[in-house]
C-alpha cells in the first residue's frame, strides 16, 4: 500500500466513525445492549408485579381487579411479619459476625509470611463453592444422628445437639452456614483495603505515641469505613434474598422461614400470583430503602475518608 492509499483509507474510515465516535453518541451507543437487557429483564417483571399486585390471580380464573386487598391481607399476616423479623435478625447477626471475623482474619493476614498467596487463596474457597452444595453438606455434617459435628461433641462428652431440627437452634445453624460461606468476602475486601492504607499516617500515629487500639479505632477503621459500608450494602442485598441455605437444610420449616422463602411458597407452591406480587413489591421497597440509606452513608464516608 502506498502512503497515499493509507491516508485515503484513513479518511474514509474517519467519515464512517466520525459520527459514531463523537463522545455524545458513543457513550449511548455502548450502553444500548445494557439498556435493552435492563428494560426486558427489570422493567417487565416490575410492571407485571405492580399490575398483578392489585389483582386476584390464582392461575385458574383470569386476573380480577381487587384494589389493595392483596396488600391488606399480607400486612395483616402474622406469618409474614415473623418472616420479615427473622430476615432482619439474620441480616444483623450475619453481617456483624462476618465483619468482625473478617476484620480479625484480615488483620492476621496483613503481613508478609511464608506461603501467603496459597493460604489466602484457600480462604477464598467457601466464597466460590455452590451455596446449595455446601448447605446440603452442612445439613449432613450437622445431622443429629450421623453428623460428624455431633459425633465430635459426643466424643468430648458434651452430648448431641439438634442443630437443624430444633426450632430454637435451626435459625442459628442457617446463620452459621451463611457466615461460613461469606466471611471470606469480608476478609478479602478488608485485606485489600488494609494493604492500600497510607503507611505514613499510621507511622505518624505510632511516633506520636498513640496506642495500637487508638490507632486502629481512629485511623484504620475510619479509613476503611467506605469498604465496610460496601460490604454491608452488598451483604444486605444478598442476605435479604437468602434462599439456598434454606433449601439445603430446613426448607422453611422449624421456624426458619424468611422473606424470600415466604414469597416462593406463596407464588410457586400455592400459585397465588397476586399475593406473591404484592409481597414482591413490598420486599423490593424494603430493599431499596435499606440500600438507599446505606448508599448515602457510603457517599458520606467517602467524603470524610478522603
Amino acid at each position: 500500500m502506498t502512503e497515499r492509499a493509507v491516508v485515503k483509507s484513513l479518511e474514509t474510515r474517519k467519515t464512517v466513525w466520525q459520527v459514531l465516535s463523537a463522545d455524545a453518541y458513543i457513550k449511548w451507543f455502548l450502553i444500548v445492549p445494557l439498556l435493552a437487557v435492563l428494560s426486558a429483564f427489570m422493567f417487565y417483571p416490575l410492571f407485571y408485579c405492580l399490575y398483578m399486585s392489585f389483582h386476584e390471580y390464582v392461575l385458574r380464573a383470569p386476573p380480577l381487579y381487587i384494589g389493595v386487598e392483596n396488600y391488606r391481607t399480607v400486612l395483616h399476616d402474622a406469618v409474614f411479619w415473623q418472616a420479615v423479623g427473622r430476615t432482619f435478625y439474620v441480616l444483623v447477626v450475619c453481617i456483624a459476625v462476618e465483619l468482625s471475623l473478617g476484620m480479625g482474619i484480615a488483620l492476621l493476614f496483613n503481613r508478609e509470611f511464608r506461603g501467603q498467596n496459597t493460604i489466602r487463596g484457600v480462604c477464598l474457597l467457601p466464597l466460590l463453592i455452590s451455596p446449595l452444595a455446601m448447605s446440603l453438606m452442612w445439613n449432613y455434617m450437622l445431622h443429629v444422628q450421623f453428623g460428624i459435628v455431633n459425633q465430635v461433641l459426643v466424643w468430648l462428652r458434651l452430648g448431641a445437639v439438634e442443630w437443624i431440627s430444633n426450632p430454637k437452634i435451626a435459625i442459628y445453624s442457617i446463620m452459621f452456614i451463611s457466615i461460613w460461606q461469606w466471611t471470606p468476602f469480608s476478609i478479602f475486601v478488608l485485606l485489600a483495603g488494609l494493604r492500600g492504607l497510607p503507611k505514613d499516617a499510621l507511622e505518624a500515629a505510632r511516633v506520636d505515641g498513640a496506642s495500637r487500639w487508638f490507632t486502629f479505632r481512629r485511623l484504620t477503621l475510619r479509613m476503611l469505613m467506605p469498604l465496610i459500608i460496601i460490604i454491608v450494602l452488598l451483604r444486605t442485598m444478598w442476605l435479604i434474598r437468602i434462599f439456598d441455605p434454606l433449601y439445603g437444610t430446613t426448607r422453611g420449616g422449624v421456624g426458619t422461614e424468611m422473606l424470600d422463602w415466604f414469597i416462593y411458597r406463596i407464588a410457586f407452591v400455592f400459585f397465588d400470583v397476586g399475593k406473591g406480587s404484592a409481597l414482591a413489591i413490598f420486599s423490593l421497597y424494603v430493599t431499596i430503602v435499606l440500600c438507599a440509606i446505606l448508599y448515602r452513608q457510603l457517599i458520606k464516608a467517602l467524603g470524610t475518608a478522603r
Binding site: Y48, C49, A280, T287
Partner: peptide, 10 residues
Amino acid sequence: MFPPVVAAIP
C-alpha cells in the same frame, strides 16, 4: 435488589 423469586413469576 429485585427478589429473583419474584422476577421468576412473570
